[in-house]
Amino acid sequence: MISLNPESELPLYRQLTNQIMEAIVRDELATNDMLPSVRAFASDLGVNMHTVNKSYHELETKGIIKIVPKKGAIIIANKRQQITAHQLNKLGEAFQPLVVEALVNGISQQELQDLITKVLVKIKED
């Protein structure tokens, strides 16, 4: 299920991006699966086509899907593959401000690791 909350602080397209990635993590979507066309997806959700379009482009930039014009998008991310140094680098940069924020608030290294474990469990459970 994809569920977008317009009241949330997170923009709709970002919510959609996150939920598609979560669906992949939970094996609801697999490599080479097709996502619907922008029009069909937006119709089903009852949201603007820009929302889906923006999300697809974000996912494409992240290397998770490949957009097939008019048809939809194909999932190219592969969980079984070893993560590349480049991707690891990019993720590190994205993590940095969050880790800094945690440190500013006085988190210890152990607490930080526990927090990540907790988040991991939550994602798989949902």
Partner: peptide, 12 residues
Amino acid sequence: IRQVHVTDLRAR
């Protein structure tokens, strides 16, 4: 009530 937009990717 929380109001959301939903869809099921398997419905199509």
